Amino acid sequence: MKEANKKNIGIDLFAGAGGLSLGAEMAGISMRYAVESDTHAAASYRKNFKEATVFCEDIRKLSTDGLKSEPVFIIMGGPPCQGFSLSNTKTRDMSNPNNRMFEEFVRFVHDIDPTWFVFENVYGLTKFKNGDENIQNHIEKRFRAIGYEVNSKILYASDYGVPQRRNRLFIVGNKNGIKFEFPDKFDYLVSVDEAIGDLPVLCNGETLMEGKYTISFEQATPYAQLMRKKSKAPTQNIVSRNRDYVIERYKYIGEGENWSSIPDHLMGNYADKKRCHSGIYKRLIGSKPSVVISNYRKSMLIHPHQDRGLSVREAARLQSFPDHFIFEGPVSYVQQQIGNAVPPLLAKAVMEKILSYK
């Protein structure tokens, strides 16, 4: 650990595989503790943050007493967000226990009293109400009540060097009375081809745990060079196997197109083709940032130039996880970890701005 970083102690709640933590470490924050109840995500976190202590348990049962051994600079985290997602039409109310997990985040901030906090969540939270009160406003008032100056904003990952059009709500607070300003947008976008164009050519269902880059480091794009900086070879080049009729459908879909380009005679198992979500069977556009990488296997996101789904490493690249970052668990759990993560480069931009106030 660098001497300059010793006072920048961080705690990650609802940490997942560690997207927020990785961005924080890139900026100069030392992650000391993480809380994550999913065993596979917690294993990924332990694999990549060897100096951090990981509590793999229900946060509601975890006391904050053991996390107060030294002053904490920042607490970060994204409480479970499925209940706030605009795609969730069944439990977008406070009867969903996941929608109350922000209470645990507030508890940790109140008890541990960090200098800063970063609360991250889906855009849908801005539209969510509990009775007549907007839940975002309620959360911000809770933080102000315990002594924090608060500011919030919807940030787009593609504005901060991430090759993906993903928007997330960030609520940032500090107890020093600082009126936090969010980082300025970058003056460039990173495309899908720039992000993954040097990764191995793969087939449907292929598993290549260690592959070879298709071009040299010097020939790679600046983004690919950033991803390859600490890696000699791309790992976890794993493509889920789709059935032959699914691959046949892919052949009819051009870049930027979706299921609507598939001939009707190949969609016989769909009762009503017109009711398909626009994000299903979406082929990425090589020259533009990706659409949102959520559960990319279930939505059947298609490689821009190959008739197959995305590999684990390609999806990780589109989320801005570097190639040395290893995910643990069965492939379906790994895919979900990637889809749930905060893009590290987006987190890095926010954390660097916070550190600029020191």
Rank of each mutant, 00 (worst) to 15 (best):
E3K: 15
N8L: 13
G10D: 05
D12Q: 13
F14D: 10
G19F: 04
L22Q: 08
A41E: 03
A42H: 04
A43R: 15
F49M: 03
L67C: 08
S69Q: 13
V72N: 01
F73D: 02
I75R: 02
G77E: 07
G77K: 05
P79T: 06
P80A: 14
C81S: 00
L86Y: 13
R92A: 13
F102N: 06
V106M: 08
T115Y: 07
N121G: 11
G124I: 04
K127Y: 04
N130D: 04
D132L: 13
H138G: 06
H138F: 11
K141S: 00
E149T: 14
S152E: 02
I154W: 03
A157I: 07
V162Y: 07
N167T: 10
N176K: 15
F180C: 01
F182I: 00
F182S: 01
K185R: 11
F186K: 11
D187A: 04
D187V: 09
L189C: 08
E194N: 04
N204F: 08
M209H: 07
K212L: 09
Y213Q: 05
Q225W: 12
K229T: 00
S240N: 06
I247K: 01
Y252M: 00
Y252R: 04
G254A: 06
W259L: 04
H265V: 05
H265Y: 14
Y270T: 06
Y281K: 03
I285W: 04
G286L: 09
V291C: 05
Y296T: 08
L301Y: 11
R308A: 12
D323R: 07
F327P: 15
A341T: 02
A347V: 09
